[in-house]
Design a protein around this nucleic acid. Sequence first.
DNA 1: AACGTAACTTACGCACCCGTAGCTTACGCG
DNA 2: CGCGTAAGCTACGGGTGCGTAAGTTACGTT
Lengths: 206, 206
Amino acid sequence: MFAAMTSQRLPASARRAQLIEVGRAVFAKHGYEATSVEEIAERAKVSKPIVYEHFGGKEGLYAVIVDREMDYVVRRIAESIATGTPRERVEKAALAFLTYVKDHPDGFALLAHDAPQASGRGGMASLLNEVAERVGDVFAASFKSAGYDARAAPIYAHALIGMVTFVGQWWTEARKPPVEEVASHIAALAWMGLRHLPKRPARVKG
Amino acid sequence: MFAAMTSQRLPASARRAQLIEVGRAVFAKHGYEATSVEEIAERAKVSKPIVYEHFGGKEGLYAVIVDREMDYVVRRIAESIATGTPRERVEKAALAFLTYVKDHPDGFALLAHDAPQASGRGGMASLLNEVAERVGDVFAASFKSAGYDARAAPIYAHALIGMVTFVGQWWTEARKPPVEEVASHIAALAWMGLRHLPKRPARVKG
DNA sequence: AACGTAACTTACGCACCCGTAGCTTACGCG
DNA sequence: CGCGTAAGCTACGGGTGCGTAAGTTACGTT
């Protein structure tokens, strides 16, 4: 996006945008703790104080990046499950998330890494839990209106999100079957269960 | 376990064991990067060089702890799925893992946190992925012998592990429904799928 | 009781990294 | 052309954390 920039002076807003992009990549690679502000500055061909001028420090930059990324994923999934039959919603949600994993590997890695302790008060392991919480609310509503045990709703919601995020993490390394195929398998498992799994599920239409 | 110790000199093997326990707790709380050797030494009522004498350093201690913990979980799950009907295996595996989460929260937190970069060569986010890999092999064999698409086996394996680990993480904070109930819901979802979920699944027998 | 060894300590060097103070350079506008 | 301001830099203080060197105390053994 800013690849061809030949190390020029940039207006504040552009530099800000660039630092967000670079920061996302670096935080995604090392996690919050192991990332140094210097590395971000270096990769942006800029000196350290610039980062502090724009974001107030390491945590400030991290907060902005995480906030943007989280909103993006959640909105994207929420849109995908807005319409359709129950089963179609499951399929589209899985496909939406896996497509995100494929097209935004940095963002996904960022959310998969440990967050700084200050972020989640208690013992929130990764930001993906918060994504699950937010997406789960939508699912929970569906479950309840479908007549399921209310107490069980969060379990199913987290189970579904867990399935997808975990497979997503695996797929990030394997990259073997195309996302559509993976999504279709996941949806089939979630919907039909192991008991009724077909030998070869049909592709989900993008 | 060593709570009533009144700050005595310990034989090497005992100190070693104590440091492993203390280390597990501290690494579980802060993750690898944010943990300092000093804090471990302090909590063990011992000075820093002792840690270096026994384990060669931060990474050495971490490696030993992770290795023990990983073996413990994997063995425990593997045992639980060794016998029974296919559905019983799914139920028992889920219950085994959730019981582990309940009884060894430190160990689970340790495995859920980011590992040091050196550990997993590529971009292994957490040790739970390695657990999934190892447990997945067992599942994969079952899947293939049951006649499923071979290429789909790892997907299902990771999906199942992801379900359980993610719900486990959620349960760590919520702690609301007893593990047996949670396990039964998960097993029902995995086995029957959303399509055939009962309103109130029967309890899994411990 | 003296001695050797295993357990442990204090003190330090070194490196890294966050965040800031104070100064310099480019660019637009009258 | 020169001046003001936005953009950027070098250099440093403060703090923390890993790992080690050299010295000290308890304990069993003869």
